[in-house]
Design a protein around this nucleic acid. Sequence first.
DNA 1: GACGCTTCGTGACAAACATCACAAGCAGGA
DNA 2: TCCTGCTTGTGATGTTTGTCACGAAGCGTC
Lengths: 216, 216
Amino acid sequence: MVEEQLIRTNYPEFEPELVKNIADVAVVKMFEPGDYLMKTGQHFRNVILITQGIVKVYREDDEGNEFLMYYLESGQACALSMICAARFEASQLMAKAETKVEVLTVPLAKMDEWMAKYKSWYYFVLQNYRARFDEVLNTLDHVAFRNMDERLVFFLKRYSDTHKTKNIKQSITDIASELNSSREVISRLLKKLSENGVVKLSKDHIELLDLSAYLR
Amino acid sequence: MVEEQLIRTNYPEFEPELVKNIADVAVVKMFEPGDYLMKTGQHFRNVILITQGIVKVYREDDEGNEFLMYYLESGQACALSMICAARFEASQLMAKAETKVEVLTVPLAKMDEWMAKYKSWYYFVLQNYRARFDEVLNTLDHVAFRNMDERLVFFLKRYSDTHKTKNIKQSITDIASELNSSREVISRLLKKLSENGVVKLSKDHIELLDLSAYLR
DNA sequence: GACGCTTCGTGACAAACATCACAAGCAGGA
DNA sequence: TCCTGCTTGTGATGTTTGTCACGAAGCGTC
């Protein structure tokens, strides 16, 4: 049982009756930074709706590198949770809380029921798939066609947009891991970017200045 | 108006009433090899169900390289056509007929209607999303984590599975384009693969012998 | 058969990136 | 204060891949 207001704030597009339904059956769960929401090979019994915080969705390789797929924030659902849940299939992705995260979990069966019943839910689910698909395509584009410097800028921008800050507080080592590159390369590229006035390097964070030269 | 048998053969999981409905409203379209089913930026007004042939879904870069995402065959739908259609959004992908292709086109409005009405359609759509998503993830994995030789083998296998033949009849130049590599590199790698007995190079095709050493 | 067209193989070189090695800076704890 | 661990910067070097240049082979056309 959940406060309806919490749902309305984060999912304003849901129709009133749906909100009431969610409030009835959803369970709130909290995650601390670093907690896993989902691991490779795991199965789902719930749909996960994010109401607070940022979730990092990534793929892990043999050496433990965490290759970033996309971030999820409040107002979004874990598309994979829906898609896997719907077919009782295992996920190929990992999802980890970047910040303190609050989610609503809704039993699987409800997802199917609501798809038929509520247009707003139906569109929400489809829109979510579509958005996630696009993000993966975008990531793929960058890996396939761009050099590391552009990919780095793309990462910084994505981080900045999602975290709503110009200051990236993440170690160079971690950034390298998310781009499946190496610390040394990222370090050198950042140096070049700061020489060009694109970023400003500070002791414990990277500040974004002007990405315009890099975006296309 | 379409033969119901055509639908039943290719989509055996559809319930009888749904088959009848599809037969009533679907229109058959034919494509010759090389024809486009969909281009970047295009909008959809139909869901596309493939009943014959192979469709190549890819992304094009600035220089016209056709970076392969996945193949579609009969019994599958163009997930993008569904997802884009549903939201009147533009596609980021290209789809081209590899062989002679036959499809059924179903007006958009029906897709939504059937989602609520027919469980078999609902599961079909979700399953399709999921399968496409997985394929893109797989492609991404390879680009991100693997070297060109492994990616080449992966491509050959995918081609072989989809086209149901051990003989790849595609120019080295084209293969290079689909892997976003260059002809010279692929040529050298194929030579190495043939030295290792993985493939046999013939004048006008590549024959797959034993991929086991390469698959993981 | 001569000509163009496309495909393919191969050597030489360049660019991007990974890896190794080492040093310096900083924070926290004993 | 010293030690330890974590992070970062940077030079040297190797690997993978892309690019350029060139020549050969096949194939259709006139």
